[in-house]
């Protein structure tokens, strides 16, 4: 009997420790609607909501950390935080260094934005954020690439004429174009790039990756992920079917 009490106590104790496992979530905080700093100074956005829900489902305690985009992968592998959840598209190059969960945002459409319809996106100067799939795409397209550390600066470069156009995720550009009062326009068709947005983890962290993967699967199955997608990206965005397949609307 005594033994039984002891072992239940030990079990309760280890369960308590497991519950208190803190996972540090690294993000950029400068890429609405994926992640941004709200008026109160906290990290907010689509990924904040998805991340908090995933942590709740996996019974983890999560803490949010801001990090510069440029050094977001080096700081993950050296252990300053445990996940990257920062609108990062799944690509083969990144997959060699870190591991990704399945996508929680369908393969993204990127788009060109310029100040006039006449902008030349194939031979002109195109701005993109450093170390993004868009920057890679521009470099291969034959246009002259100018890179900036933050998405904000890529837009400013187009506004002040330094670049003819900018290539970025369409969802990031939509609110900017809508509120620019006709100054900025989309040109050409959206460009499909990357393999969707996933959460990045250290390659040695298979267990944690499994937990988040499971969470994403269950969120896809019960439709809660779709609700968040529609809330942050609008009615027209691509969503997931209950089996995890992508549904374009």
């Amino acid at each position: 009997m005594k033994n039984l009490i002891l072992s239940t106590a030990a079990l309760a104790l280890t369960a308590g420790i497991a519950m208190a496992d803190t996972v540090r979530m690294g993000t950029e905080g400068a890429y609405p609607p994926y992640n941004f700093i709200n008026d109160a100074g906290e990290i907010d956005g689509f990924e904040r909501e998805v991340g908090d829900e995933l942590c709740k489902r996996a019974n983890l305690e999560c803490e949010w950390v801001k990090n510069d985009w440029d050094s977001i992968i080096p700081n993950l592998v050296s252990g300053n935080y445990d996940t990257i959840i920062a609108g990062m598209s799944i690509t083969d190059e990144r997959d060699e260094v870190i591991d990704f969960t399945q996508d929680y945002y369908p393969p993204t459409a990127s788009a060109y934005v310029a100040t006039s319809d006449a902008a030349d996106v194939k031979g002109g100067v195109v701005a993109a954020q450093t170390a993004t799939i868009q920057a890679g795409h521009v470099a291969e397209s034959g246009a002259t690439l100018v890179e900036f550390a933050t998405p904000e600066e890529t837009i400013a470069a187009v506004r002040n004429g330094e670049a003819d156009a900018v290539l970025a995720d369409r969802d990031y550009l939509v609110p900017l174009v809508e509120e620019s009062g006709g100054e900025l326009v989309f040109i050409g068709d959206p460009v499909p790039l990357g393999g969707g947005v996933g959460m990045g983890l250290r390659e040695s962290d298979g267990e944690l990756r499994g937990k988040f993967d499971e969470g994403i699967t269950s969120m896809k199955a019960d439709g809660s992920l779709n609700e968040m997608l529609i809330k942050w990206f609008g009615e027209g965005t691509a969503t997931y079917g209950s089996d995890g397949s992508v549904v374009t609307n």
């Binding site: 400068a30 609405p32 609607p33 709200n38 008026d39 904000e152 609110p175």
Partner: peptide, 16 residues
């Protein structure tokens, strides 16, 4: 300064 000065759209802040 960079973060606060950047363009803010009304969707994500009360002070666009």
């Amino acid at each position: 300064a960079r973060e606060l000065g950047g363009t803010k759209t009304s969707k994500f802040t009360q002070y666009p």
